[in-house]
């Protein structure tokens, strides 16, 4: 079983996932260099599926590359570019290479990308894709045909706690959990009150016992990326005071660091939150600083610690 799967079964330890950088061209060595900063801190990293509707090296190829480089991948699968036949083929194809973690998303629309004229697919939607993955895990394709030996898929999904209809988001998350999601990577949320209400609803409903909630944080260097996310990333709103706080600071990069650290501390303080999903746009060594400041040990140390504990018992 994957490390992520083991952590989910153990049920109490911190889980750190990360958004692996995309790669457009180059070699495995180039990719290794790109992963180097964030990978040591993560239990698993997302092999993204054409993020923001931009073509990149494929999710399956990146996942296999990560495995070769000693990084545990999470195969992200979106519904925008492929129909149900191709989605099943990707999941089973990656599983053939030992990729067990998958994360099911509806996906950004083609209009979010740089090829808006492309045909959008959306043969399935996010919750249906989760259920489909559950079927594969149980040993059959959607058609009912046997997959032979079922892959030990560790199925996850995403949810956005900060986008309308706000009062419905926790129910939608619950729907995904019922469909088979065992962890949820949340969209970055710059409204702490919304994140709190969302997590509290899931926690009170008992859903956090069945599913690990991993709020996202995005480390940026200044107000520019915050403005960009607010204006251009669908479903993300960044309040003017948050942008102003960074823009007007004497040292914007330092203030942006403080912001992301506060976001981590806040998220981890919420009952029902199991860990974090990290995205790094700073690429200046901040990931090591952030994890150290938060008291989060590198993956290798956390693995050892868990092992010792098992031995002690």
């Amino acid at each position: 079983m994957s490390r992520l799967g083991e952590l989910l079964e153990r049920g109490d330890e911190l889980i750190i996932t990360g958004e692996a950088p995309v790669i457009d061209g180059g070699t495995l060595a180039d990719y290794e260099a790109k992963l180097a900063e964030l990978a040591p801190w993560c239990d698993a990293m997302n092999a993204t599926d054409n993020t923001a509707a931009h073509a990149h090296a494929s999710n399956v190829a990146m996942a296999i590359a990560m495995q070769r480089l000693g990084v545990e991948p999470i195969l992200q699968v979106v519904c925008r570019d492929k129909n149900r036949i191709a989605q099943q083929a990707d999941i089973m194809g990656a599983a053939l290479h030992g990729v067990e973690n998958i994360c099911c998303l509806t996906g950004d629309d083609v209009t979010a990308g740089d090829e808006s004229e492309a045909r959008r697919v959306f043969d399935l939607d996010g919750p249906q894709l989760i259920r489909l993955a559950s079927s594969l895990r149980e040993g059959r394709y959607l058609s009912g045909r046997s997959v032979g030996t079922p892959p030990a898929l560790v199925i996850g999904a995403v949810e956005n706690p900060g986008a309308p209809p706000l009062d419905y988001r926790a129910q939608r998350a619950a729907k995904k959990i019922m469909a088979g999601a065992r962890y949820l990577q949340l969209q970055i949320c710059y409204h702490p009150d919304r994140l709190e209400a969302f997590v509290a609803a899931l926690h009170q409903g008992g859903w956090t016992e069945r599913c690990a909630i991993l709020p996202s944080v995005v480390a940026v260097k200044g107000a520019g990326p915050l403005r960009f996310m607010d204006a251009s990333v669908p479903g993300i709103s960044v309040p003017a005071e948050v942008i102003g706080r960074v823009a007007d600071a004497a040292e914007p990069a330092e203030e942006a660091y403080r912001l992301v650290r506060e976001q981590c501390e806040h998220a981890l303080s919420l009952p029902g939150v199991r860990g974090l999903h990290l995205t790094d746009f700073r690429k200046d060594g901040s990931m090591a600083r952030l994890c150290t400041d938060l008291g989060i040990k590198p993956r290798s140390e956390r693995e050892q610690h868990a092992h010792h504990r098992v031995v002690a018992v």
Partner: peptide, 29 residues
């Protein structure tokens, strides 16, 4: 626009409008 049958995607705008068609209120909202 995404023909979603199981609720709103994560791209709903702050004003409750559609990610794809900003002039349209999100069908799921």
């Amino acid at each position: 626009p995404k023909t979603l049958r199981n609720g709103p995607c994560g791209g709903v705008r702050e004003d409750g409008h559609c990610e794809v068609k900003p002039e349209m209120r999100c069908v799921w909202v």
